[in-house]
């Protein structure tokens, strides 16, 4: 192996090393771009889907409070929305309910870019937004009503 071949190999190794680093860094960048594109396509969904999505929420301002009406007739609680809020019977939930029809970790409310979404976390009895079952995360607005088990959550400004 001549010194020349060895240095060619050395430079190839360094080149390949930087190629790998470049690809790895780019994969992060593409990841972000891909997510953005995904969001854009959800915004420009097929018209029928758009109608369906619009009907499930009344539209309007994003909520800042949620009023919890539990079925046992106890006094309604007012909870301020500040970060991702889990709803359920479990101890880890920010909105903890004693409703037996509610799962341990039932659903969650979370904010993204100033909008709020409700998402069902695989509950047994389902989560309903304005009496429509929530299958995937749906945007919520002030005035919407979310039902989990027998509990009613009212979203307010």
């Amino acid at each position: 192996m001549t010194p020349f071949v060895l240095s060619v190999l050395k430079y190839s190794l360094l080149g390949l090393l930087y190629f790998f680093v470049f690809r790895a860094v780019r994969s992060v960048a593409l990841d972000i771009a891909g997510r953005r594109r995904e969001r854009r396509t959800t915004e420009m969904r097929a018209p029928t889907e758009q109608v369906a999505a619009a009907r499930s929420s009344k539209g309007g301002k994003p909520p800042s409070h949620v009023v919890v009406h539990e079925p046992d007739g106890a006094k309604a609680r007012n909870v301020k929305l500040s970060g991702p809020t889990q709803i359920g019977r479990g101890a880890a939930c920010a909105i903890r309910l004693s409703d037996t029809y509610v799962s341990q970790v039932h659903a969650r409310l979370y904010g993204e870019n100033g909008s709020w979404f409700v998402e069902d976390l695989g509950s047994t009895n389902g989560t309903y937004l304005n009496d429509r079952k929530v299958a995937s995360p749906v945007e919520v607005h002030a005035g919407d009503v979310v039902k989990v088990g027998k509990t009613v959550l009212e979203l307010r400004r």
């Binding site: 190839s12 390949l16 190629f19 790998f20 790895a24 994969s27």
Partner: peptide, 12 residues
């Protein structure tokens, strides 16, 4: 692609 590049670099 990433894993094969890693393999080529390691063995290389």
């Amino acid at each position: 692609g990433f894993t094969i590049t890693a393999l080529v670099l390691s063995v290389g």
